[in-house]
Structure formats: C-alpha cells, structure tokens
Design a protein around this nucleic acid. Structure first.
Lengths: 269, 269
DNA sequence: ACTTTGATACTGTTATGACAGAAGACAAAA
DNA sequence: TTTTGTCTTCTGTCATAACAGTATCAAAGT
C-alpha cells in the first residue's frame, strides 16, 4: 500500500474533519438531528415554543446548513413546523392530526404484528412475553404512586421499546424505520398531553403479546388494531381534558429567547 | 398605506426573488424536487445512472443548496442514494428492497381500503367503479397491441391514479401523503423492470373495487392485500427475468456526463 | 504483464455573508 | 385612547466559494 494511502487512512482514523480538530462523527446533520430530537423529547422545548436555527447552530458549534437539514427532516416527520420567513416551532397537534397519525400507526403496527406472528422465532416470542409482563407490572407500580413523575417517563420508555421490538422482529427494516419515525410523535405527545391517564387493564400488554405470538396472522392483526385504537381514544380524551390551548398564531416573543435555561416551564418531566 | 410597503408589495407582485428578475414560485427546493422527480419518472435518468448536483443546479438556474434539499427528500423516499464524498445516483432496488416496499404498501393501502369502505359516499364509489372498468379495458387493449410502448405508459398512469383516488377518498390526508410518496417507487420500477408482463385477470380491478365498495372493512382489507400481493409476485418475477444487473459499484463514468441529451438509452418508454 | 504512484477532475459538504420578508417597538397623529 | 407609519431586529432562504475525500487515468516503477 502506498504512503499516500497510509497517510490518508491514518488521517481519517485520527479524526480530522475539516480544519483539524473535531471528528465529524457520522455527519454533522445527523449529529444535529439527534441533538435537536433529543432536546424536544426531553422537554427542553415545550409544545409550540419557537426555535431559532441560528441559536441552535451556535450551540451545536456548526453552521446553519446542517441544522437546517436536520430541521427539514424533523419537519417531514411532523415534529416541527416552519414558515418561510417567520420562524420554526414545535408543532402543536390538532385532534385531526392525532387521529390521522393513529390511523397510520394502526396500519403499520398491525402489519408488523402479522409478520411477527408468521416469522418470529421462539426466543423472540419469549422475550416479548417477558417485556410485556414487566411493562404491565410497571403500570401497576405507577398507579400505586401517582405522584412520582419519573415513573411516567419509565413507563413510556418501556412501552415504546416493546412496540419497537415487535417491529424489529417483523423482519422488514423499511417497515421498522417507518414505524420508528412515526412513533416519535406519540412519544412526544404522551409527555405534553399527559393528564391523569385513564387506567389500563392489568394484563393489557401481556394479552396483546399472547395474541401476537399465536400463529394466526389475522388474530395478531386484530389484537394490535384494538390495542392501538384503545390508545387513540385515551390520548384524545386526555387532550380534550387538558384543553385546547393550541394557539395557532406565531407569537415568537422577541425579548426572551424562548427557553434558554435548562428546564421547560409547562412540563412535568 | 406607506410608500415603503407599496414598494415592497409592488416588488413582490412584479416577481423579485433575489436579484431582480425571476419569481420564486412556491420555494425553490419544491421546484427542484418536482423537476428532478419528473425527470426520473419520465426516464431522463436510467436506473443506476449518476446525477450531479452541480449540473442540476446549473440546469435549473439555482444554487446547489435547494438542489441538495430536494435530493435529500428524494433520498428519504428511496428514489435516490448518495454517498458522502462520492456521488449521487438513482437507486437500484434489490429483491429485498422490493419486498420491503410491498410490505409497506400492503399495510398502507389495505388501511385505505378499510377506511374507504366505511366512509366513502355513493358518488365516490361509482366513480371508482367507472375508473376500474376503464382500466381493465385498457389492459385488454394493451394485450391486443403488445408493441405499442405508449400503452404501457397509459396503463401505468391509470393504475396509479386509481390507487391514489382510493387513498384520497379514505379521508386521511396523512395516509394519502404516505401512500403517494411510497408509490412513486413502484411507478419508477414499473418502467425500468418492465418485461413481458404476465397477463392480469380481465376483471382484476373491477373485482377489487367491488370488494372495496362493500360495507365490510375486513373484506375490503383482504381484497386489497390480495391485489397488492399479486402485484408483488408479478414485479419480482419480472425483475428476475430481466436479470440481476444491479452493479453495486459506484462507477461514475468520468468523461461522459451520464446522459445529458433528452433520452435514456436503456429505456423502452 | 502487473503494480504502484502521482496528477487531476470530479464528488458532496459546509462556513460565510448578503438578502427579502415579517413582526414587535415606539413615537406621532387622529 | 386608538390608530398609523416607520424603524429595528428577528426570521428563513440562498448564492458563493473554499474544503476534503474519492475515482479515474496516465506514466513510471517493478
């Protein structure tokens, strides 16, 4: 191998992106995408709060171009909306939005359930049974301690992970990716629209996994559809109870930079 | 009204995007997106051919930035793939890709069929019946004239339009958008993988629409699933017959600019 | 004949800066 | 007190240009 190639390879290994210091690490737009998404999901930005491309670019130590690319992706996923010369903000979902998203979720996840019941191996079915039991247990713990805010976080995380496992074990990577980018929305809304969530049957997810683990694709489909519909009704009733505080205007609030300090105000996470 | 505003408004009306001549017209990235997509679907670029952001930018009369945004959207839809410092080209699907996409299509369109059978009005059902009959007739015409290349184009257009109508009348805009961005792939592959397509039952689409027009969502779901599966088998067998010419290397072909003149060489459109 | 080595012409990436538009701030006029 | 016009400062958009990586090809080495 030539010295030239050796030098280049060593250079790439040592991490030299552009000027000579910071490694580029899987592309800067991806880095920005993950960072922004993480901040949204953690509550750094509340629903409806304005975000500035320039400020984000400065915070992340890059230019506006990769940030804009990341924001574009988030906008296509529905987390963010942007008006040409006005601003960018976290999207506030209407009831129709939520219904639409649940329709898509029903289509995708029922398909994943069909594939799972056809293709999954014994080990995977067993893993899901255990996860479901664990999740049902977590729900009971949360009902016992209604004031512990961290439990909400834990339950939601476990819930999303269970569904993601099902879609992973369906064997279709494209389907899994679609489900993931679709479910991010629910994960976000769960936090912001959370009131006193209606209780869930004690064997809710265990029953679901049992139906999905059978070798009947139609039964798996029907069970997942019922599960998703139940979730939809709960989410919508919750949203109505919280109240339609969706201000559709674009007040950007000049003076205060939205929320630069660590915690969002209206959040309970 | 102030002179300042009058000047600005007049400026905007007369069409002044940046320097002073061309109107911006719904955003330049959208313009680029539509143009590139149109050129791909029309056969200006063959499967696997390399495309240059710079050349496209020059042809469209804009900078590389809006072109890159459009290409990013197309890449996320799966039409295009891009390697960081190497190039961009029209994606050549593998058999696994096609299977994955059909899985998603099955999920989305069967959901649309369910919603259609529940929600659609009488006028819409009748319109679809007519469209289906027309499409079935077109298929027969094509079988009678196997050498007319324009008939392939006509049939495919009518086919896609029928499916798009079903998803529109489902009443969910998000679902419709997803189906559209997903079906673009099939529309493109149809052209490039076309051999001697296996004949289709004479009442193929009329039967489908009849099943979907019934008031039984489960029957509508099953009918659409069977329809999509039939299409999948036909497409994959067709692809195998054409031969796996998927060169996974990135030969960009330095000298010749891919295909600058109007027609692609390996296309039969 | 085969391999290695530069040179070169391309690729996508991204920082910088200039631009048009929108909205709040604020003073002047009704 | 209310309305109106202007100014300032923010927003996203985008053209330009410099950067680093890669593939190709020709020539020199073996």
């Amino acid at each position: 191998m030539s010295y030239e190639k050796l030098r280049k390879r060593a250079n790439a290994m040592a991490g030299n992106p552009r000027n000579g210091t910071r490694p580029t690490l899987q592309g800067m737009p991806d880095q920005a995408y993950r960072a922004i998404r993480e901040q949204i999901l953690t509550g750094r930005f509340a629903l409806g709060s304005a975000i500035s491309r320039r400020r984000l670019a400065a915070e992340l130590g890059m230019s506006m171009i990769p940030v804009s690319e990341a924001i574009q992706r988030l906008a296509q996923e529905g987390l963010i909306e942007s008006k040409p010369q006005v601003g960018t903000r976290i999207r506030i979902p209407t009831e129709a939005d939520i219904r639409d998203r649940f329709i898509i979720r029903e289509a995708l996840e029922s398909q994943a359930a069909r594939l799972f019941s056809e293709r999954a191996g014994m080990a995977e079915r067993r893993e899901l049974r255990e996860r479901a039991a664990e999740l049902d247990g977590l729900y009971q713990v949360r009902y016992a301690n209604p004031d512990d805010a961290t439990l909400v976080f834990k339950v939601n995380t476990a819930h999303v992970q269970l569904h993601m496992r099902i879609s992973e074990y369906s064997g279709s990577v494209a389907l899994c990716q679609l489900i993931e980018s679709n479910d991010v929305l629910f994960y976000n809304w769960m936090f912001d629209l959370v009131g006193e969530q209606p209780p869930v049957p004690s064997q809710f997810h265990s029953d679901l996994v049992a139906a999905i683990s059978s070798t009947d694709p139609l039964g798996a489909d029907a069970a997942m559809r019922a599960h998703v519909r139940y979730n939809m009704e709960a989410t919508i009733q919750n949203m109505r109870k919280i109240g339609a505080q969706a201000e559709s205007s674009w007040r950007l609030g000049r003076g205060k930079p939205a929320n630069t300090n660590g915690q969002a105000l209206t959040h309970s996470r």
